[in-house]
């Protein structure tokens, strides 16, 4: 997993729980003197270990932690790469452009070979069906990222994870229903 994701988690933990909590997490789950650098790759197990311990510390289910992390991560990445998000004129174009725009940019910057595969289809106005596949099975994090994007574009969003790799499906199917928040 690329360091930029670890840096997002670092930022979230320090913001919500403080530096001591992050240091304790690092101590337990990462080698000594670990400093995460965005462009560098680190073992996936480190991220899962850190996320697991965040869940324990916050007394929340892992699913909630991943979702919350995804939502936070969207804001974190937006702050770092505003120009990428500027390419989209709204929530729908961003969701539809995850593979063709965002992942292309990610590949440019980080040479990440294991990006998730995402296919989206607009079923009707206010309804997108997203297909998600990743060997890391971080679909809940993807859900969080959708929540983050919806918040950015002022959308009320409801997600229905109708098929899930964690339940034996070949890929996840997430129904994304959304409506603009009234001003």
């Amino acid at each position: 997993m690329k360091g930029v994701i670890f840096r997002g988690l670092e930022s979230l933990v320090i913001e919500k729980c403080g530096m001591a909590a992050w240091e304790a997490l690092l101590e337990k789950n990462a080698p000594d003197d670990r400093v995460y650098i965005s462009a560098q790759s680190y073992p996936d197990e480190e991220l899962f270990g850190l996320a697991q311990d965040v869940a324990v510390a916050l007394q929340l289910p892992m699913t909630d932690v991943l979702r919350a992390f995804g939502e936070y991560l969207f804001g974190y990445l937006l702050q770092r790469h505003p120009t990428i998000v500027d390419e989209f004129d709204g929530f729908v174009s961003l969701i539809m452009g995850i593979d063709s725009v965002i992942h292309v940019e990610v590949a440019k910057l980080y040479q990440e070979p294991n990006l998730p595969k995402i296919r989206c289809e607009v079923i009707e106005e206010g309804f997108i069906l997203m297909h998600y596949y990743s060997s890391r099975k971080l679909c809940l994090c993807a859900e969080g990222l959708i929540y983050g994007a919806a918040a950015h574009y002022n959308m009320n969003v409801t997600l229905d994870h109708v098929e899930c790799m964690h339940k034996g499906a070949d890929e996840c199917a997430i129904e994304v229903r959304f409506i603009k928040v009234a001003a």
Partner: peptide, 17 residues
């Protein structure tokens, strides 16, 4: 400082790409 260096690195990487 890390953020700034990474931003520089990313800008250069994008330009190089």
């Amino acid at each position: 400082a890390r953020d700034e260096l990474e931003r520089l690195l990313e800008d250069k990487t994008r330009a190089l790409f």
